[in-house]
Design a protein around this nucleic acid. Sequence first.
DNA 1: TTGGAAAAACTGGTCTGACCAGTGGGTTAA
DNA 2: TTAACCCACTGGTCAGACCAGTTTTTCCAA
Lengths: 252, 252
Amino acid sequence: MAISQEISYRLERLILDGGLAPEQKIPSERQLAARLGVSRAVIREALHELQGRGVIETQHGKGSFVASMVPQTDTVDDHSPLMHLFEGHPRTLYDLLEVREQLEGQAAFLAAQRATGADRHRITKAFRALEDTDPLSNARSDHSFHLAIVEASHNPVLVHVLSSLKNMMLMTVQASVANLNPRQEMRKKIIRQHRQLYESVISSKPGVAQKAAMAHVRFVSDSLREMEKDGAQVIRMPVPPDGSAQHSFQSL
Amino acid sequence: MAISQEISYRLERLILDGGLAPEQKIPSERQLAARLGVSRAVIREALHELQGRGVIETQHGKGSFVASMVPQTDTVDDHSPLMHLFEGHPRTLYDLLEVREQLEGQAAFLAAQRATGADRHRITKAFRALEDTDPLSNARSDHSFHLAIVEASHNPVLVHVLSSLKNMMLMTVQASVANLNPRQEMRKKIIRQHRQLYESVISSKPGVAQKAAMAHVRFVSDSLREMEKDGAQVIRMPVPPDGSAQHSFQSL
DNA sequence: TTGGAAAAACTGGTCTGACCAGTGGGTTAA
DNA sequence: TTAACCCACTGGTCAGACCAGTTTTTCCAA
């Protein structure tokens, strides 16, 4: 294994084992290089790796610091590779919603066909929870509801694919909840859509369920787009450099 | 923002917008450095950051590669969780075809809407190859054709999802080719379906393209089911890795 | 002609030492 | 006292060299 990898692992372990507290300053690159007997380059590479993982943060002229592992409460898994591709690239949000529309529609269709008694019970339970919860914890409830339907499709591949996208899904759900729910009329529409989806699945109407699920996702997507057009901040994140679409390295 | 950060963002963006498939090779550090007009050091730092996020993987002496989103999906070994789904569950083949029907339909729809000149050229090329090839190598051609359409959808999420399912997709394609193609009448139907899909995408008819793609997958699935019912042995075998999808970096 | 080993041309990994660019503390001059 | 400046930190970038694996090419011998 490369030296820079070893060093990044050692530093990470040091941090995780409590040797270094959040907010604490890490020795300077030159100090680390001297202390570990390697060049500054490998130190920098190791630090960049930790930076990529969100373990540390670096400030020009000041130094590197252990990242404060803050909002682990309702925050999605930051270690998911795609999460980072997603952050700051709002277009991907809509790409995901595009795919989600299709897959959720199919899941609803199949669920309406295949849901067993146990499935229906789980779906009903999730739906009830969705009705009761306050908007704050709503993202989880929302996701749980959709997940229950997906699982009722009894298609392992579908379940696997959607669970692979779980983190990103949570993100879109979160975006919709955070941005759409507060608006009363939006919230009512979404509740009605959920109810429609729920009832069509439970009453075994595949076609209706599919349309309902797709319409729901589409509605969320369109609404977010609309709000964004009005200047609302849909995704919070440091703005990435420029905006032109690069389709090959030529344009880099 | 630091140059290395910018570059890591741009590379991320490129991976998404270019729809670079997992396992695809990234230009060498020296090439990137020359092309972007920066030192090799910043390239290495940027790559280490992406490495930390699990977006890419690097191998000494070989190069850096886009990491697969779903872990180990591309390894033919049974270490893959997806492959494990197949064992003792022949139904999974049909589950996959079920999902494929939906996603391929969507891909065709989007491709008909968004395909650029370059996309159309690639699709046409793949289609020509599909017409010419002998049934033996047909599985590859078939898959390449569908892949070209997926990439023309310009939805990175869709591309990544389908790429991650590559091996399983190849499996279904192979199953169809091996079992369906030899039967002359089947083969003709499939060829007609492909042509229909091709023409509707090229002539920008999203709805028609979607229906064509879905009907095609559905036909394959139904036919396989039918044959299996008749006692035929439907082939389900992993396919060795391929060497396609290298076009995104050609512009270098 | 063909096999296969050596050589060359790649790839990433590390080192060195220099210089640029922000930050902050301390000294000095107004 | 306070404002300006300097200087010693910090990270950021660059250049060129060399080491260490991998792949391709070359070329000689069987």
